[in-house]
């Protein structure tokens, strides 16, 4: 089949049939829509968070009518001759601002004490699309923290219900023990009866979590992420490829994560053995420094600016430390 031509924010590209708008925009490589729930390595993800909404001003060459509503770019496949507006559309930007506001109204904004601070997709998103102040005056939703076994902690209050961890468990492990219970805005990720998540690949749910809801218990509070340095690391492993990132401080491996592409998606899932049990420098062959996603607040050094935004109430003392 012939490639399809799409135009996004005035830039055109040819893509194979089946490509989604988001993928096409990522191929163009600039100002692609954000994605909080869609995750390329996981089947069935996407469509839930709605931050990736874009406007289709021309459906296709054959049927040029615009689409009546904004569409989720992560799931909508391109047609030949499709014309899309992302950041050039005020309607899209306004809608995205709305979605970010919705995601934040029940988010605890406890960034100063959150392990994910500095590598949090929601933080990055609200920096780029959020508003100055919150209009939300009602009480926030709260949940107790729970331990999912000895390695992983769930801080449900921070969860944005992207369902990524559920798909991870479904697709990487043979016996899913956690899922989404309850419904509406009291839905929560849980095992329901405090089952430990115990499976060789369960640790990956930490890496796919876009916020700080699932964290590595063995790493928690050891260091803020930006005080350690990430390196490509490798070890021989019979369960996974053993290709990981070692976060190093003072010649100590303080945590191990999977390698991700520039869209924050895991390249190769790693096993729990590599992730949780190998914290010595000589467990690993340490390689080059690991490059960070160029959109992150860490790499763009915008963290301080963010502190002054009341919508994301980051305590300044962590930055000046």
């Amino acid at each position: 089949m012939n490639n399809l031509k799409v135009t996004i924010d005035g830039k055109s590209i040819e893509v194979p049939p089946g490509t989604t708008i988001l993928q096409a925009a990522r191929m163009i490589g600039e100002n692609y829509p954000p994605a909080m729930c869609y995750y390329t390595p996981l089947k069935e993800t996407g469509g839930k968070c709605r931050v990736c909404l874009v406007k289709v001003t021309q459906g296709s060459e054959a049927n040029p009518r615009p689409m009546p509503k904004l569409v989720a770019s992560c799931l909508t496949r391109v047609e030949h001759g499709m014309v899309i507006e992302n950041e050039t559309s005020p309607e899209v930007l306004e809608a995205r601002k709305g979605v970010v506001e919705f995601l934040l109204i029940n988010h605890p904004l406890d960034c100063p004490v959150c392990d994910q601070a500095g590598e949090c997709d929601l933080q990055n998103l609200s920096y780029k699309h959020g508003t100055e102040s919150t209009r939300y005056e009602e009480g926030r939703r709260e949940f107790d923290k729970i331990d999912l076994g000895e390695n992983i902690q769930l801080h449900m209050t921070r969860c944005i219900l992207c369902y990524r961890c559920v798909y991870t468990a479904d697709q990487l492990t043979n016996k899913r023990v956690h899922g989404v219970i309850n419904r509406g805005d009291v839905s929560e990720i849980s095992t329901y009866i405090q089952n430990a998540i115990d499976n060789d690949f369960s640790g990956n749910i930490i890496d796919v979590c876009p916020v700080g809801a699932l964290t590595d218990k063995k790493y928690r509070f050891k260091q803020r992420v930006w005080f350690s340095k990430p390196f490509y690391a490798h070890r021989e492993c019979d369960k996974c490829k053993g290709e990981a990132v070692a976060w190093v401080k003072n010649n100590d491996v303080i945590r191990v994560t999977a390698r991700k592409n520039k869209f924050g998606e895991v390249l190769d899932f790693i096993c729990n053995n590599c992730r949780f049990e190998h914290k010595n420098m000589n467990d690993w062959t340490i390689g080059e420094p690991y490059e960070m996603d160029n959109d992150s607040v860490i790499t763009t050094n915008k963290y301080k600016v963010l502190d002054h935004s009341p919508a994301v109430n980051v305590d300044a003392k962590f930055v000046s430390e």
Partner: peptide
């Protein structure tokens, strides 16, 4: 609607509850 939202997508999950709370006030 707040009670019946399935909770999957953020605008409905968060927005319906917000509207309810403001109207309650």
């Amino acid at each position: 609607y707040h009670h019946e939202s399935c909770g999957q997508c953020s605008p409905c999950r968060e927005g319906t509850g917000w509207m309810e709370k403001v109207l309650h006030r």
